[in-house]
Write a protein that binds this DNA or RNA. Structure first.
Lengths: 205, 205
DNA sequence: GAACTTAATAGACATTTTGTTGACTAACGT
DNA sequence: ACGTTAGTCAACAAAATGTCTATTAAGTTC
């Protein structure tokens, strides 16, 4: 669990400054790699003094995290607004649409040699390995209902995400338990568990 | 699909140089944030001239990608070595053990304000939202067979991974289709599809 | 093992970026 | 209206970058 830092109410000037800095960074990141962006450039575009940056953040990375937080808060707003209760499908559709509508930003974020690229690379590495494994064992004439590439990404994403969770939480379970959970969830899905709890699954399609 | 660049056979000196640089970077990353590491420091630790770095890489980021590739190749070796055929469970156990054994490196990689942190942050953001949704609808006395935190991470990882895949592949499906796939895979699992293809699932537990 | 080819070195260079300072002024909250 | 504090401006030393040349040493090829 991430402890949200105790956020004191900010001055209107401070809120404005941080917003300007965030907008400047997210705008710049669509033009060049994150690592190539200088603090000078950010403050220039935000039309703020460079010293002001240091009043709020220590590094570009801190600003990036803050900026993304803003971006995702917007997304959550969208999802909360337009969902049927417990209709996960609808929420996911909104997420995909949101990414599409902000595709320039998101593409930039995960583009080669930018902020999110490493994660993409790792997941892709796992997924390619997984695809290879699957293809070895699927009869060449068999056409699965969901493309193999997508199944691989699903499994790879789950594995990646749980590896990090496990790592950042100081290994609360054994590797065998973790692998068991993944096996169970990927193979059998989670519907069984949820329905056992009396949750009704709504399929929005 | 990532196109592997046409790798020409490297000189023994070049191989050595790149290996030294990779080791230096992965060693440094365990001591300080990636963004704080300078090229000077990397070459110092590798005991190479700074100019040599530029003979191989343009930026720190390029070196990082290359270094991680090495690291993951090792992992794949491990998995290929010690697996029963089609026993996904066994492979995942090896992955978790590998991360544990290299925990200092991996922790560093996903630590605050380092290379992989952004991805972790995004997944965590999605997962917290997902946890919240689940908890709202699970009866307080119900104890699910898999911890809710873990289910959330599973779903969040899948969503994250597929969002990026979809984005980087220029939106080959509609948002509705993508959400449908996720719904299907998360809820019902993938075993059905695989068994339909004649694949025998082995549970290693 | 000799001959060619090229990677790595060393030192130097101008340039850019960084992080921090202190005095000033403009905007904020109560 | 007042006291407080965020943002500005200019300046600064220190550090890091990227590129260059000439030289040395190690590789590859035959």
């Amino acid at each position: 669990m991430i402890s949200t830092p105790p956020k004191k109410k900010l001055d209107r000037r401070q809120r404005r400054t941080r917003l300007m800095l965030s907008e400047a960074l997210l705008s710049l990141i669509q033009e060049k790699a994150f690592s190539e962006i200088t603090i000078q450039e950010i403050t220039d575009r935000a039309d703020l003094n460079r010293a002001t940056f240091y009043l709020h953040y220590g590094t570009k990375e801190e600003l990036l995290v803050d900026s993304l937080e803003r971006q995702f808060d917007l997304l959550v707003q969208e999802i909360r607004g337009s969902r049927d209760f417990m209709n996960f499908w609808e929420g996911d559709v909104v997420a995909f649409r949101h990414v599409y509508e902000n595709k320039t930003l998101f593409k930039a974020l995960f583009n080669d040699i930018s902020a999110g690229y490493i994660a993409f690379r790792i997941i892709d590495y796992i997924a390619e390995f997984s695809t290879e494994e699957l293809l070895e064992h699927i009869p060449p004439n068999y056409q699965p209902p969901i493309p193999v590439e997508i199944i691989s990404r699903h499994v790879a994403g789950s594995l990646f995400s749980l590896l990090i969770w496990w790592l950042r939480n100081d290994f609360p379970k054994t590797p065998e338990e973790m692998a068991g959970y993944i096996q169970e969830m990927c193979m059998m899905g989670t519907a069984g568990m949820l329905m056992e709890a009396g949750i009704e699954i709504i399929n929005g399609q």
